[in-house]
Design a protein around this nucleic acid. Structure first.
Length: 422
RNA sequence: GUGGCCAUCGUUCAAUGGUUAGGACCGUGGUUUGUGGAGCCGCAGAUGAGGGUUCAAUUCCCUCUGGCCACCCCA
């Protein structure tokens, strides 16, 4: 068992796992496209500066987890593997002048992303997410559309007990005042805080609300609440989102301490959570509004909103609940032959069947017919076509073992088509 | 990135400081050489890597690699 292994935190997906992931991916595209979102396929790498400026140089995602590519030559611009989708999508929006298209521009992608984090179940260095971005609309209507789209996608997958935790993190005008209030609130106990929390106190006090440190948790209970500090615009926006979602049957759970990890979020911020799941499994996705991001990366002011749902985590959650979403489906017809000379005929006939829209494979072995039938039976084939030494074809129905008398190709093709139609 | 637990055929479990590391599943071949998932009989396949201790290491120690858990972070 020596030799090469897949890199740490990166997996080989095959068999049922690959089938499930593919199914979730196609369900994601179907859900998004049905709602008017168009696919966008982006480079797997971008200029490092895009992520540094867009996501925030002080975030863990950029400061510690970014896969920076070794420069190929002295002139080359530093590139990094994408750790998330939003920055790249907004870059494409700006680059291609999508602001002259009808707004909002609705985009969807299901793609792999890379973060150099310590791997764990549900947390991989290469992971796949389902991303939706709606760019160019300040909401709150589009907020509601996007939040509902993600929630109903997860419910339709079979995760009926998904919870939507919602908060408003304010905007550039109201958040500074709240941050100052939090700093003032936690400052008296600075000495009791851990090192990490002390840094947060200085750099991003909102994160203190997320701390697991007992001292910080206790202090957080009496912390001022964000809603009280929202400006009139943000408060009205959040109220509208809550009200309309309630009206259409999407229950929001208020999460005043929910603070998304990336710096660019404004106003609406939410997470899709599975209650009762341990570790990484619970946080299946999250989203937010990022009205300031376009300007940060050199575009004109453009409001935007989006979410990311982890495909890997969704698959794990489904598997943990015993929900089968995808399985390997072998071809329904196997073409066997009595003697080796029939190989060309076997492969040719299998191809003909496929052209006719029937899934089929040839048995390309030199095994005896009994072994060939055994293989077909294990693949749960519906029918087997046996090429007789004289070139005629026998159709055998696997369910009952009935085998018709040898016939010509045209009539066998008709019989197979009729059989599979039932 | 910090701390902890773990590592035997493809899978799942055994065993052991000392001849050929065992079973089950899976795979593969045979089963009077042209008719199926069973049965029977075969075959193949592992101590993650590198060091060390020892007469002897898969077993003890160290490092690395990888997995999992908590933290962190987030999808």
């Amino acid at each position: 068992m020596s030799g090469f292994q897949a890199p740490r935190g990166m997996r080989d997906l095959f068999g049922a796992d690959a089938a499930a992931a593919a199914k979730v991916e196609s369900a994601a595209y179907a859900a998004a496209e049905a709602a008017g979102y168009q696919r966008i396929v982006l480079p797997i790498a971008e200029e490092s500066a895009l992520f540094e400026r867009g996501i925030g140089g002080s975030t863990d995602v950029v400061s510690k987890e970014l896969y920076r590519l070794a420069p190929h030559s002295e002139e080359s611009t530093p590139l990094s593997l994408r750790p998330e989708a939003t920055a790249g999508i907004l870059r494409a929006y700006i680059q291609h002048g999508m602001r002259s298209a009808p707004q909002p521009v609705r985009l969807v992608t299901v793609a792999p992303f890379f973060r150099h984090d310590r791997p764990q179940k549900g947390r991989y260095r290469q992971f796949t997410t389902f991303d939706i971005e709606a760019i160019g609309d300040a909401g709150p209507g589009i907020d509601i559309e996007v939040i509902e789209l993600g929630a109903s996608f997860l419910v339709a997958l079979g995760l009926r007990d998904i919870e939507v935790h919602f908060n408003s993190v304010g905007c550039a005008t109201c958040r500074p005042a709240y941050a100052a209030a939090l700093t003032a609130h936690f400052a008296p106990i600075e000495g009791e805080l851990g090192e990490v929390d002390r840094i947060r106190l200085r750099e991003n006090p909102l994160r203190l609300l997320d701390s697991k440190d007992p001292a910080a948790v206790r202090r957080a209970e009496s912390a001022p609440a964000l809603p009280g500090y929202l400006c009139a615009g943000c408060a009205a926006h959040a109220a509208a989102v809550r009200q309309v979602l309630a009206a259409i049957g999407v229950t929001l759970i208020d999460a005043p301490r929910l603070v998304r990890g990336l710096d660019y979020y404004t106003r609406s911020a939410w997470e899709y959570l599975l209650p009762g799941e341990q570790g990484q499994q619970g946080a299946i996705g999250g989203g937010g509004r990022y009205d300031g991001l376009a300007e940060l990366i050199g575009g004109s002011a453009t409001p935007a909103i989006g979410f990311a749902i982890g495909i890997d985590r969704a698959v794990h959650a489904l598997q943990d609940r015993g929900i089968t979403i995808g399985e390997v489906v072998p071809p329904s017809v196997v073409v066997c032959g009595i003697d080796e000379g029939s190989l060309a005929a076997r492969i040719g006939l299998a191809s003909t069947l496929r052209t006719a829209g029937i899934s089929a494979r040839a048995d390309v072995s030199t095994r005896k017919i009994g072994k060939q039938l055994e293989g077909a039976a294990r693949d749960a084939a519906v029918a087997v076509i046996i090429i007789e030494p004289d070139g005629r074809l026998s159709l055998r129905i696997m369910a009952d073992g009935k085998q018709a008398d040898p016939a010509d190709e045209a009539s066998v093709l008709r019989a197979v088509a009729a059989l599979l139609k039932r």
